[in-house]
Design a protein around this nucleic acid. Structure first.
Lengths: 188, 188
DNA sequence: CATATATCTAAGCAATCGCTTAGATATATG
DNA sequence: CATATATCTAAGCGATTGCTTAGATATATG
């Protein structure tokens, strides 16, 4: 009865996500998205409503990619704290593209937009962070001697540490990042 | 012989710095700078050449402010590691405006522009980071048992931690930031 | 006071921003 | 095959971007 869509949303959004990841929200223009996604603005807007819509779906896409390539491994590990340490190392490899690092898309967005970001964007970000933190708590809890207060405290510590790793990965040498990870887990 | 300038560079640049600090480099427009600085574009360009020029001077202005309100205190302290810990707490207060945090202008810039930022911007950023790191090393070295390798390692660790604190301060609760600082200095 | 000149205002430049729309194209149905 | 309709292309919308410039204004000198 009508013409078929020449693309799949799940495929083009991945290109959008990569662009937002590399450039940030504001700098990424609709024209750049057009080229990266391989569709024109009409299609973009009819599929995702507006630029913010493309970004929200990109965050969702990032979440899935991170789960697949990073989080599931941590989830399934039985190494406790060492599994979290490995997660830190894995994250650096995950964020690397060619010979530079682009950080974590979530952390980048926090840094760029802060707490006065759009409420929908904010919701996705905090939900992602909560998921990771809960997983950290779960792994930390393999040490049964830890009280809930200690677990909460250590998880908070690790979450902030991860943000540091994300930003620092953009400029620091891998030696410096290694020093950071080693030291970070000295006291847990 | 000629008309007098109706403003002082050092005064208007402070307003520019505050704006860049709050909004980031890209989002801050020349029209916004005009209003914040209280001068028009002609004056802005004749004093600072272009937008990048205003930003470079803003970085310099930030450096001075940080030195005055933050770094000098650390420099003059004789508390060793505890002085650095205090520096972390002081930084949070330093970055606070009203009831929200704007992070560190240097860290914000690293996060936004990364290593492919303009070379002049990059130079200022790395020089600032080096100064802070050297100061950390100096304070860590009050413990004479530490080798140069340990000093380097711990300073790297602290530098990345500080970046984490900067980004996290934008979204996390002060309880979470406190947990972070406490844990960060457990193993030094 | 008259003049030279730096500094000001305000208008305007081309380029780009996010977004819309009119008209051409393709395809599942009667 | 003819028709209805979703999807495509491409042009263009007003607003904003960084930056420039022509002309008005003010002031230290001869």
């Amino acid at each position: 009865m009508a013409r078929k869509k020449a693309y799949k949303e799940e495929e083009v959004i991945e290109k959008a996500m990569e662009l937002f990841w590399e450039k940030g929200y504001e700098v990424t223009s609709v024209r750049m998205l057009e080229k990266a996604m391989g569709i024109n603005q009409f299609s973009m807007y009819s599929s995702f409503k507006n630029k913010k819509g493309v970004f929200l779906e990109s965050l969702e896409c990032y979440k899935k990619k991170a789960k697949r390539e990073l989080i599931d491994k941590l989830k399934e590990s039985s190494e406790g704290v060492d599994a979290i340490k490995q997660y830190f190392y894995d994250f650096i490899a995950f964020s690397r593209i060619q010979d530079s690092n682009r950080g974590c898309l979530i952390t980048n967005t926090v840094s760029e937009l802060g707490e006065k970001a759009d409420p929908e964007i904010l919701r996705k970000i905090t939900s992602f962070a909560t998921d990771v933190k809960d997983l950290f708590i779960e792994k930390l809890a393999t040490d049964k001697s830890k009280t809930v207060e200690v677990l909460e405290m250590q998880a908070n510590y690790l979450m902030v540490s991860l943000q540091g790793l994300s930003v620092a990965s953009k400029m620091f040498t891998s030696k410096q990042l290694d020093d950071f990870i080693k030291n970070s887990f000295n006291n847990i």
